[in-house]
Write a protein that binds this DNA or RNA. Structure first.
Length: 591
RNA sequence: GGGGUCGUAGCUCAGUCGGUUAGAGCGCCAGCCUGUCACGCUGGAGGCCGCGGGUUCGAGUCCCGUCGACCUCGCCA
């Protein structure tokens, strides 16, 4: 070993010992010709080392040429710094190492940005020099947290007799869902593998094979546009169980969440986690992943609008639309006309809303350019239904159900954040259940699977499968944490007849079904146990535990919004030779 | 594919109405300093103002295009 201790572990108790440390020169302070201080840094902390001519002048000459981020090894004696000379900011601040021998292991160029302190450079530069960025304490902490969480997850499942089983990365493309990342086959000209969007089908097949408790920390790939919380490759905690029902999965994951949160961050999560139906959260929060760290629920006033004299509202209400609103407590003074008429109006416009109506509560009445269209009685009904009080701001969107939901949900999140309606350190975890199984796709003239085509219809709704498929609820569930979809799963179809009915509704004919999923359907014909599963987004979970809102901060080597790796330059062109082997020709882009 | 923000020294940024030699802090380099720890003091170097066009007597500044990063809508079974 090149060292006897790390830079984070020496204490006063070790005073007098001769030790060897190795690490990076974090900071360098020269104090006259013959006294040099260096803060030596490694993953574990920092230790002050001292060079002094008392010891050896030859070393001193080299010591004076040290620069930040050089890698050195020092041998020396641990000494108590002396009263009044300790540094409470360092865990090793009571001691220093007086160097007898210095070895320069590696020189560093001047880093393009400061490892600690100073403002963060732009992300492009950070990603190009990710090896330096990762030296920063925040990222070191995040990576450590990710490790802790992963280990806690493994330990939890291992204790419950789950098997961790790997599934292939080179799989078959199934055109459902997200775009696949394709990998050309050299041996089979013109054929392609697809990187997995998730191990969904493999894990179901493992259930048929009798591995009744499976989990995997699985890398998944989706070739879709990125967001702050979405990367093209990401990690799922993938879980599947046999001989279980929905509540068994929920209880298992309740246990996972509370155990892991306690273990890695000492956060108490009471279980069972609350459950809400899809219909309930859409009505109250406009979102299937509501942030329940604060209230400010949506109120529906469609009936009042229909009876009012306000033609815009009446028109929408009369043609099957909805008028729904939010109550911003004490918001009347906080949002100027400009903010309301321009900023917030444009904001809801991004979600398809054609306008944003607003009223202020003052003197027990409504104050607004549109208040005159509402009778006194209607005004009182609106105020009481929306829980309004003097000084409150009422915001309304009049549109289709879908638009009112997405616009008000986004508005609610924005105002909650802006007005600091919740503690950003807190956590709210909940289940959303009873999603619709199918959503009607008018363009294609068929239903689409809301979750995926293997999701079990809720047995209570079996009769609707033939009469009114849009009403069928799925036996599916999402775990929502602080407004993020943290996990998603379902009870799977284990009966090939029901599977056939669902394929019919999705207008996947049996020939097509056999071609795409034949291997799964065939497996289901050989004695498939009832099974159910779920997948948790590992990156998002770490992100939330790290108190971050960007997934790249918890991934060692993330990609940019255009899915490029700034460090390595991927994706890149390849040699013609490689393309010839694959018989692939690159064509010019069509204009 | 659409909308938005940004791009000036190694980094973070300022740069007025289009007008002299483009600035600051940090970092870097050199010198000084024997108890510093965001050390301090003195001095110095460092600029394709993302790139390409255009308007103008004159462009960091205005216009068009383009590249890149970020946020976002669509998209993400």
């Amino acid at each position: 070993m090149l060292r006897t201790h790390t830079c984070g572990e020496l204490r006063r108790a070790q005073a007098g010992q001769t030790v060897i440390l190795a690490g990076w020169v974090h900071s360098y302070r020269e104090q006259g010709r013959e006294l040099v201080f260096v803060d030596l840094r490694d993953r574990y902390g920092k230790t002050q080392v001292v060079f002094n001519t008392d010891e050896d002048t030859r070393i001193d000459a080299l010591a004076r040429r040290l620069r930040r981020e050089d890698v050195i090894r020092v041998e020396g004696e641990v000494r108590y710094r002396g009263d009044g000379m300790t540094n409470a900011k360092l865990s090793t601040g009571e001691i220093e190492v007086r160097v007898h021998q210095l070895t320069l292991l590696s020189r560093s160029k001047t880093p393009p940005f400061e490892i600690e302190g100073g403002e963060l450079p732009n992300e492009e530069l950070r990603l190009k020099h990710r090896f330096l960025d990762l030296r920063r304490p925040e990222l070191q902490r995040n990576i450590q947290l990710r490790h802790d969480l992963t280990q806690a997850v493994r330990s939890y499942f291992n204790d419950l007799n789950f098997l961790e089983i790997e599934t292939p990365m080179l799989g078959r493309s199934t055109p459902e869902g997200a775009r696949d990342y394709l990998v050309p086959s050299r041996v089979h000209h013109g054929s392609f593998y697809a990187l997995p969007q998730s191990p969904q089908i493999y894990k179901q097949i493992l259930m048929v094979s009798g591995f009744d408790r499976y989990y995997q920390i699985a890398r998944c790939f989706r070739d879709e546009d990125l967001r702050a919380d979405r990367q093209p490759e990401f990690t799922q905690i993938d879980v599947e169980m046999s001989f279980v029902q929905r509540d068994d999965i929920l209880a298992t994951i309740d246990g996972l969440v509370s155990t892991v949160m306690k273990k890695v961050r000492n956060i108490d999560v009471p279980t069972p986690l609350p459950r809400y139906t899809y219909h309930d959260v859409m009505a109250r929060f406009g979102s299937d992943k509501p942030d329940m760290r604060f209230g400010m629920e949506i109120t529906d006033i469609t009936d009042i609008a229909l009876a009012s004299e306000f033609s815009v509202f009446r028109g929408v209400a009369g043609s099957g639309g909805f008028i729904r609103g939010l109550t911003v407590k004490n918001g009347a003074e906080k949002y100027s006309r400009r903010l309301l008429d321009v900023d917030l109006k444009n904001f809801v416009g991004d979600y398809g809303a054609k306008g944003l109506a607003y009223m202020k509560v003052a003197g027990g009445r409504l104050e607004s350019s549109i208040a005159k269209f509402f009778s006194d009685e209607q005004q009182q009904t609106i105020i009481s239904r929306m829980g309004g009080a003097d000084g409150d701001l009422l915001l309304f969107v009049a549109d289709t159900w879908k638009v009112t939901c997405s616009a008000l949900a986004a508005l609610r999140n924005r105002i909650g954040r802006e007005q600091q309606l919740y503690d950003p350190q807190s956590f709210s975890c909940l289940w959303v259940v009873d999603f619709p199984l199918l959503t009607w796709n008018p363009e294609e003239g068929r239903f689409d699977a809301e979750h995926h085509p293997f999701c079990q219809p809720n047995p209570d709704d079996a009769e609707y499968l033939k009469t009114d498929p849009g009403k069928v609820r799925a036996d599916s569930y999402d775990l929502v944490v602080n407004g993020y979809e943290a996990a998603s799963g379902s009870v799977r179809i284990h009966d090939s007849e029901i599977q056939q009915m669902v394929f019919d509704l999705l207008k996947i004919n049996s020939e097509e079904a056999e071609r795409r999923f034949g291997f799964l359907l065939e497996a289901l014909r050989f004695g498939a146990p009832p099974h159910a599963g779920i997948a948790l987004g590992l990156d998002r979970w770490v992100m939330l535990l790290a108190g971050n809102d960007n997934i790249r901060e918890v991934i060692a080597f993330p990609k940019t919004q255009k899915a490029a790796d700034m460090l390595t330059g991927a994706p890149s062109e390849v040699d013609d030779r490689q393309l010839r082997d694959l018989r692939i020709a690159v064509t010019e882009q069509e204009k």
